[in-house]
């Protein structure tokens, strides 16, 4: 049947007609939004946590530092025992360990025995790969204030920054190469002192890492050993520090009595002379000088150290 007009429609349109078709569309679009948000969150987390990995913690049982003393087997037994005891006591107080290789343990060829310091330090780093500080102390020195820890006494960045002698000639009195004037404590890998003659290698602290390997290997280079530096490794050290910026940049010189007080100083200078309470007493030169006897010289301070040790133990 045909009608003349189409059937009548309501003249009101549904006000929310569009809704029915739009809502699933919206729901559909939410998914990418959530995905986007999730991706953004993951990105932020990645940057927060993964990009700056927390410094890898050393495995438990890692000593905080290694005290290295290279021992000449020709010295008297009692002397060797005394200096070993001195270091062992210090290490035990702070959770450090000691390492006492002999000067003959490393193949030095014809170079003087004193060069064995360097492979000894490298060796200690191999034995304790996760330890951060390596404290080398010559066999002519005693630790006289065992209560001082390496970290709080010297290596803590703010402490180190306040101790560092900046802008002074590396080799006194008139080297044109001067220590850096702006060094951050946490970027210093090598701490030592100066005496009257130059860099005093009897007592030094090295922070382990790639730089330390580089420094020790460069220092131990056969061409330096064969060069006949007058004072062997000490002069080689002065040489590389002055000629190679990448080494100077990691070096901090601290006042002598912080790390390396001398018991006597031929030049008459007094600011490096040992005073009761100093960290280390170094009988500098007692081995080189034939008129001096290290063991005898050490006796008074050795008994003083024993007193300190026994007093604090009881």
């Amino acid at each position: 049947m045909h009608f003349a007009f189409p059937p009548r429609k309501s003249s009101y349109s549904h006000p929310y007609a569009a809704r029915s078709s739009r809502s699933p569309f919206l729901r559909r679009t939410r998914l990418p939004q959530y995905l986007g948000l999730f991706a953004l969150g993951a990105f932020c987390l990645y940057f927060l946590f993964l990009r700056s990995p927390a410094p890898t913690k050393p495995p438990p049982g890692t000593p905080g530092a290694v005290v290295v003393t290279v021992i000449d087997p020709d010295l008297s037994k009692s002397y060797i025992e005394a200096i070993k005891d001195n270091r062992k006591d210090y290490a035990a107080r702070h959770g450090y360990v000691t390492f006492f290789p002999n000067t003959t343990d490393y193949a030095l060829g014809d170079s003087p025995k004193s060069w064995s310091t360097i492979p000894a330090l490298r060796h200690a780093m191999t034995l304790y790969p996760h330890t951060s500080y390596f404290f080398y102390l010559t066999s002519t020195a005693l630790i006289m204030n065992p209560s001082l820890s390496l970290h709080s006494h010297i290596m803590a960045p703010t402490r180190l920054e306040s101790l560092t002698l900046t802008d002074i000639p590396v080799v006194p009195p008139d080297s044109v190469i001067k220590t850096f004037s702006h060094l951050r404590g946490d970027r210093i890998d090598f701490v030592m002192t100066q005496d009257q003659e130059g860099l005093a290698g009897g007592s030094l602290i090295l922070r382990s890492g790639e730089w330390a390997k580089y420094f020790l290997d460069a220092w131990f280079d056969p061409l330096y050993r064969s060069y006949n530096f007058q004072k062997a490794e000490a002069h080689a050290l002065e040489h590389i520090v002055q000629w190679h910026g990448t080494i100077l940049a990691k070096l901090a010189l601290v006042p002598q009595r912080i790390l390396n007080s001398y018991t006597r100083d031929q030049s008459g200078r007094t600011d490096g002379i040992y005073v009761e309470g100093d960290f280390v007493a170094n009988f500098h030169g007692c081995q080189r000088d034939e008129n001096r006897n290290c063991e005898e010289e050490m006796q008074p301070l050795l008994s003083r150290w024993r007193e300190i040790r026994d007093r604090e133990r009881h």
């Binding site: 290789p101 343990d105 193949a107 490298r122 780093m125 191999t126 790969p129």
Partner: peptide
């Protein structure tokens, strides 16, 4: 030790 067979005990001190 540059290949010395009679090297002392700590000859190989490297990591």
């Amino acid at each position: 030790t540059s290949g010395d067979p009679n090297a002392p005990k700590y000859a190989n001190y490297l990591d």
